[in-house]
Simulated assay, not measured.
Amino acid sequence: MIDRTKVWAGTLNEVALGGRAKRSVGFYDTTLRDGEQAVGAAFDPAQKLEIAKLVDGLGVGRIEAGFPRVSEEDREAIRAITQAGLKAEIWGFSRALVDDVEAVVDLGLRFCVIEAPISDPKLAALGVTREQVLGRIEKAVAFAVRNDVRVAFFGVDSTRADLGFFERVYRAALDVGAAEIAIVDTLGIATPEAVTFLIGRTREWVGDGVPIHFHGHNDFGLATASAIAAVYAGASWIHGTVDGIGERGGNANLPEIALALELLYGVETGLRLDRARKASERLREIGRYQLEPWKPVTGENLFVRETGAVAAQFHIPEAIEPYAASLLDTPRGIVLGKKSGAASITLKCEELGLPARPEKVATLLAAVKSLALEKRGLVTDEEFAAIVHRHG
């Protein structure tokens, strides 16, 4: 539960959202499957188990353990994850092919996403007709259901599908036993308004009894906004990954979506924001990738200040930050550089236990700025300590 006294977003959102029904939503993590599609990412079974445990610790409701038909390594990872006693439901992934589903059944998985392309560009690229893909979907879903697997049908590129065929495909999957459906913005092309339209329209004809998932990508930087739109249009589950890791522009970023939903919309997600930064740090070590230092939730500079004017307000966090650093279990800090001011010097001296005589602050600031310009970078704590001792 978020401590609302540590959220300093003002009242505008409450006014604008007044009258909207309170929502809750579940998170479906696909870091191990869709996230691994990021260029250069390759997780071994031990790493996949570790990542699954990290994700489970974040409090997501469902974890997609992988695609069994990919390799024996993937099957080994799935076996380990299903035996790890995690709290989340463990889901498999399959194409709409009976052989794929058999691999899921053989591993004892009780939940599975079954995917098939449903847009004309995707069908043309694969040389498959609409009728052929419909037949595959019906056979694969029916086979899974006969083997006591709960199915969520996943229409690849569904945001570019012909609307009539979109409805026909999803109805066909439901008719043969799919219990849930996933609407998929494979190339991240849907605006939040389009997501609202498509999920809202689908909710009208499936009714309230069928959970709708939304799976979004971030090619246009809209994944978080689209996920929020999906929640308010009636989606029960939001797919995504830690850090938004994935191919091209990445997947929807679950911690980022949780931050916005929890702090700005008051929507409960169950995600442990206080664990998100550590999970991200470890995933980056395993996946060997970096993030922008200004990235929401996980950016290293979120609560670090260099600018002197802002440092002068550092003692009043709500004046310079939208929420408390403690919500993410991370410290605040001052760094010194070209943009520092007198308050920066005083605060850094206090932090390091160094003498900060008022008459010396201007001299120390000038020395800091000079070194920062010379370095074209920040002044380290060690360098600043030397400056203080030098200027006595």
Rank of each mutant, 00 (worst) to 15 (best):
I2G: 12
R4Q: 12
T5K: 15
W8N: 06
G10A: 01
L12M: 11
E14I: 11
A16R: 14
A16L: 15
G18E: 09
V25R: 01
T30Y: 12
E36R: 02
V39E: 15
V39P: 15
A41F: 15
A41W: 11
A42N: 15
F43W: 10
P45V: 06
Q47Y: 08
Q47M: 06
L49Y: 14
L49T: 10
A52K: 00
K53D: 06
V55L: 02
V55Q: 05
L58H: 00
L58F: 00
G59Q: 00
V60E: 02
A65M: 04
V70C: 08
E73D: 12
A77S: 01
G85L: 09
L86Y: 01
I90M: 03
G92E: 00
L97N: 11
V101T: 02
C112K: 01
E115H: 03
A116D: 06
P121T: 11
E131A: 14
Q132L: 00
V133W: 03
V133P: 04
V133I: 14
G135N: 12
A140L: 02
V141N: 01
V145W: 10
R150T: 14
V151S: 08
F153K: 01
R168G: 06
A178E: 07
I183P: 09
V184I: 07
E193Y: 08
A194H: 15
G200C: 01
R201A: 05
R203G: 11
G207E: 10
G209V: 07
P211H: 00
G216C: 03
N218W: 10
G221Q: 13
A227D: 13
I228F: 13
A230G: 05
V231M: 04
A233I: 07
G234Q: 03
A235H: 02
W237P: 05
G240M: 05
G244N: 03
I245F: 08
R248D: 06
E262G: 10
V267G: 12
T269M: 08
E281L: 00
G287T: 03
Y289C: 00
W294I: 11
L302K: 08
A311E: 12
A312W: 14
H315F: 11
P317D: 09
I320R: 03
A325S: 11
L328A: 05
L328Q: 13
V335T: 09
K338Y: 15
K339R: 15
G341M: 01
A342W: 06
T346N: 13
L347C: 00
L347I: 02
K348L: 02
E351S: 13
G353Y: 04
P355H: 07
A356M: 02
A372R: 09
R376I: 09
D381V: 07
A386S: 06
A386M: 12
I387Y: 10
G392D: 15
